[in-house]
Design a protein around this nucleic acid. Structure first.
Length: 951
RNA sequence: GCUCGGGUGGUGGAAUGGUAGACACGGAGGACUUAAAAUCCUCUGACCUUUAAAAGUCGUGUGGGUUCGAGUCCCACCCCGAGCACCA
């Protein structure tokens, strides 16, 4: 594209960027009486390849918001910094043979240049860098406080190990059993490691989510990740042994259905039970086989469960003293619950599959109750219900392999013949009677019952009452087609269909009917829902959900809460990270490095390749490793593991408040003024990593009084990715990366900013299109050219003036809602209107510039100064919407006939009688009313008229 | 499998239950120009009747429902994306 003569974006943008730098208008201070607003971006990890156009999307949105807030009278904190420890930087350094500290410096410089070109209003005096010793001093300090509070522990348990990155990983660092960074399949490897008890905070991390103004999806992800479940811990004694097996279950109500117990192959109990195990050799080799497998092999989809019986070991069911066999199997996880489960194959799908495979008994203890929860026939909670026993009849045709189904019209049920059993009837009698009444067939024979009762709770629309029905499934065969007349009443209720065997399952749309049919077909399945207890001694007949705690108590167990969240594996066997400030003393054991010795600096060395042995490369640096015990002054060695990449990003937003404080992590006064972060913007990829760690870290700091709020980020917004023009994720690999530097050179930063905000909804992923960007550039040029029409005084059309004030209102609202696309389109509409005016007065034009200032800061400041202003537009006040100007003199009333748009009435009289009359008189409405009777007239004041006509 | 999003023209998308397609891109035609670019103006969901003006029918993934009126609310289903997943 050729550059137009008058609007030279590169000159203007450079000019204002240096002007802002010189005047320091974006410097932030706490010494202010204004209300504060803390607007934060997720700080970037400065990689070697620089930014692509997708990266700044979030930064532009926060920049727009920060500028808007500043103009609206807020004291705004809007900082930027660098997250630079960890594997990516280290790998980059190893590959390019430069020290990571140098590589990071270089990359930061490049990122900063790229960002500055876009005209962001960051206060660079507050820049932080997680690899700066003055910064990580406080990361180490926080770790020491956790250590002091007993929140850390040293463990040797097997953890996730990435063979390619040569380091242990936390659960959060995995992606489907693979290393999130390099994609290698992760192994389980026992290595010495430091672990943080994040699980102590699981409950609070979960509960406090509710109050946050975060996207649902992120809250859901975190809920999933934390994975709270309530259940019971029950103990099974082992026959002829001192040992016992504790199991965790969410279904204590099924304990009478336990037919075996399963331990995880890794369970330490197995070794203890060795004397009793008759097939020890087989058991041992099974354990070895399982240990060899990776997580992926063990959990691969569709993988068959395998296990081995511990021959000779019997566990005693605490509910009924029954002796059940004990197994070990790979489907039981060692690190969840107690590492052991009670197997109830009748009511758990996994146990069912396993029991089928190994021929273990299946014992039903719950009769199914299906409760309808959606639709007009949903069971109405809290309303009394009627109980009823009923016959359900599967009926086979006398000559074909077809089955008699009914289509209940009002209830929209597809099912079999069903009918209540009267008090003196047997189920079979009732079935025969109902079949005759509902279908007319009279000659049939009863073949068999279809299992035990099935219950259902629903709302019976025909009788208009809640029902708790107890169904008795039966199978009949017609002998011939002798049939009597069906009453009109029955005909009205349902249609009769003969459905072929293959189609019955799809035809049925009621769960209890489907189960009846499955029983008829002989299909066995675990019923995992709740229901009525059976085969369970004194608990029989009770509602399974209501007896959880009673049955737990009865078995001598206790109710407990378990989480999927695991403790945070906090050690990395790599060089480029914060050294963990602990010392191992021969005499005193683990001793923390005294706080006054912090920061414990990472030694600057030439060789820092990972060893792959489970030891950090730091272990080889004798000079650094060998130290004195701070306690006894005896010989000691430093901890050589480093912290994970996520450590530094757990609290950086606090440091921005007080970035240069040498005495503490953050001055409490400043913290109190700025906390919490009002708006936090970043990608969804941090849902279960950074955003969980940071919330945990913050809560810990809150507990020790360092911060004043229990949650760090009040509002969270996720920007949608910008995909490549080809619709794929932007990546070097696909060669579809668009570089912002090029775009800025060609179109200018303001155009890029407008385009990225105009593309579509902020949170939605969207493809880059340089073609579409033209529109944003044109918009800017038209604003630029509009100044030729500006005169001191001019009278605008009434509707243009209304539009102006509507725009002021909408743009402000939209910016705060992150609806930038509609904010911009509204300004485009205003511009279109202003262009139709003969002249535009200065005041109006300046208002437009003020509205544009957050989006196009360079253009706005340039035109502002051209209008004769000496001070920057960015320290001006946001224009005020004059509500009185929003009202039009007349309104356009939509006229509908039978709900269809037929015309518009423009009037200033909002009286109903007048509007209805005037509407009726209109020619285009007349047409649709002629010869018809108006049976209803609807009038929505000042907006709409609808004539309902007949004939 | 469970949970959370989403499905609207050629394209990106807009729409407190009330004229679906704002705004923009692209396209068509025209003006200006020696010409092109840029700019400006007009048209641009599909179908259909008509010389035309104008009107009509259909139309927001599918099928039902509620309502005077549904892209929007309810039910069932299909498709796409994301998170979790042998978590007992």
């Amino acid at each position: 594209m050729k550059k137009p003569v008058s609007y030279d974006h590169s000159k203007i943008e450079k000019k204002w960027q240096s002007a802002w730098k010189k005047s320091g208008i974006y410097k932030t201070s706490e010494a202010s009486k204004k209300p504060k607003s803390y607007i934060l971006d997720m700080f970037p990890y400065p990689s070697g390849s620089g930014l692509h156009v997708g990266h700044p999307k979030g930064y532009i949105a926060t920049d727009v918001l920060a500028r808007f807030k500043r103009m609206s009278g807020f004291n705004v904190l809007h900082p930027m910094g660098w997250d630079a420890f960890g594997l990516p930087a280290e790998e980059f350094a190893l590959k390019n043979k430069i020290h990571p500290s140098i590589a990071v410096k270089k990359n930061v410089k490049r990122y900063k240049e790229q960002l500055s070109v876009l005209g962001f209003c960051y206060d660079w005096d507050r820049e932080v860098n997680t690899t700066d010793p003055e910064y990580y001093k406080w990361t180490q300090w926080a770790f020491l406080q956790m250590h002091k509070k007993g929140l850390t522990y040293e463990s040797h348990e097997p953890i996730n190990w990435c063979p390619s990155c040569k380091t242990g990983l936390a659960n959060e660092d995995l992606d489907n059993g693979k290393c999130e960074r390099c994609g290698s399949i992760v192994e389980k490897k026992p290595i010495r490691q430091w672990v943080i008890k994040i699980t102590d905070y699981a409950d609070r991390l979960l509960k406090d989510l509710d109050a946050l103004n975060w996207p649902n999806s992120i809250k859901e992800s975190q809920k999933n990740w934390i994975g709270r479940s309530e259940g019971s811990e029950l103990t099974f004694k082992i026959k002829n042994s001192e040992e016992s097996i504790s199991v965790f279950t969410t279904r204590p109500d099924t304990i009478f259905g336990v037919t075996y117990l399963v331990l995880a192959p890794e369970s330490h109990l197995v070794e203890k039970l060795k004397p009793q195990i008759k097939n020890w050799y087989k058991v041992q080799s099974f354990i070895k086989d399982v240990a060899k497998k990776t997580q992926i092999e063990r959990t691969a989809e569709g993988k068959e469960k395998t296990g081995v019986h511990l021959d000779g070991v019997f566990a005693i069911n605490p509910a009924n003293d029954e002796e059940v066999p004990v197994w070990i199997a790979d489907y039981v996880l060692a690190d969840y619950g107690t590492g052991a489960v009670m197997a109830v194959p009748a009511h758990d799908e996994r146990d069912f599959v396993f029991a089928k495979k190994y021929n273990l008994p299946i014992k039903e203890v719950i009769e199914p109750v299906y409760t309808k929860t959606t639709g007009p026939d949903a069971f109405r909670e809290g309303v009394p219900y009627k109980e009823r026993h009923a016959a359900v009849c599967v009926i086979k045709h006398w000559s074909e392999d077809k089955y008699l189904c009914l289509d209940w019209k009002k209830n929209n049920w597809h099912g079999f013949v069903v009918g209540g059993i009267e008090s003196l009837e047997t189920a079979v009698d009732a079935g025969i009677r109902e079949i005759a009444e509902e279908t007319g067939y009279t000659n049939l024979r009863f073949v068999k019952e279809l299992g035990g009762p099935i219950h259902a709770k629903f709302y019976q629309l025909l009788k208009e009452q809640n029902r708790f029905a107890h169904f008795h499934g039966m199978y009949f065969e017609l002998v011939d087609d002798s049939r009597k007349e069906i009453s009109e009443g029955e005909k009205a209720i349902h249609d009769i269909n003969w459905v072929s065997k293959q189609e019955v399952m799809d035809y049925l749309n009621v769960d209890d009917m489907k189960l009846t049919w499955a029983r008829f077909l002989g299909v066995e399945k675990a019923y995992v829902g709740s229901g009525i207890i059976t085969n369970s001694g004194k608990f029989n007949g009770k509602d399974s959900e209501s007896i959880m705690s009673e049955i737990t108590k009865f078995c001598g167990g206790k109710t407990v809460v378990r989480y999927k969240l695991r403790d945070w594996v906090f050690s990395r066997q790599r060089y480029w990270g914060e050294p963990i400030p602990l010392v191992h003393c021969e005499k005193c054991g683990v001793v923390p490095v005294p706080e006054k010795e912090l920061p414990l600096k990472l030694p600057n060395v030439k060789f820092y390749e990972p060893t792959g042995t489970g030891e950090s490369p730091l272990a080889k640096i004798d000079k650094w490793v060998n130290t004195k015990c701070p306690n006894c002054k005896g010989k000691a060695k430093r901890e050589t593991n480093t912290m994970p990449q996520w450590a530094g990003s757990c609290w950086y937003y606090l440091r921005y408040m007080d970035p240069k404080n040498k005495k503490m992590l953050v001055d409490p006064k400043k913290e109190k003024y700025w906390s919490p972060v009002d708006v936090y913007v970043g990608g969804t990829e941090h849902a279960t990593r950074h955003l969980i760690y940071a919330r945990f870290w913050h809560k810990f700091l809150y507990d020790i009084g360092v911060v004043s709020q229990s949650e760090p980020f009040t509002q969270l917004k996720n920007q949608g990715l910008i995909m490549g023009p080809d619709g794929q994720k932007m990546s070097k690999r696909f060669g579809n990366v668009v570089n912002p530097d090029d775009v800025v050179k060609l179109y200018g930063a303001d155009s890029l900013r407008v385009y990225e905000m105009f593309m579509g909804p902020f949170e939605q992923a969207i493809s880059w299109s340089t073609d579409n960007m033209i529109g944003s550039r044109r918009f800017i040029e038209r604003v630029w050219r509009l100044k030729n029409k500006v005169v001191k005084k001019a009278t605008l059309k009434k509707e243009t003036e209304t539009l102006l004030h509507k725009t002021i209102k909408k743009v402000g609202e939209d910016i705060q809602d992150f609806a930038h696309n509609t904010a911009i389109s509204t300004m485009m509409i205003l511009l279109n209107a202003l262009e139709t005016e003969e002249n535009v007065d200065t005041k109006t034009y300046e208002t437009l510039l003020l509205l544009l200032a957050p989006f196009t800061p360079h253009l706005a400041d340039e035109l502002w100064s051209q209008m004769g202003h000496k001070k920057s537009i960015h320290i001006e006040s946001w224009p005020i919407c004059d509500e009185t100007k929003l009202v039009n003199d007349s309104f356009k009333i939509t006229i509908q006939v039978n709900g269809k748009f037929r015309g518009v009435l423009e009037t200033n009289n909002s009286e109903e009688a007048f509007v209805l009359n005037a509407s009726k008189k209109k020619h285009e409405i007349q047409k649709h009313l002629e010869g018809k009777e108006i049976i209803k007239q609807i009038y929505v004041k000042n907006r709409l008229v609808n004539f309902v006509v007949k004939g």
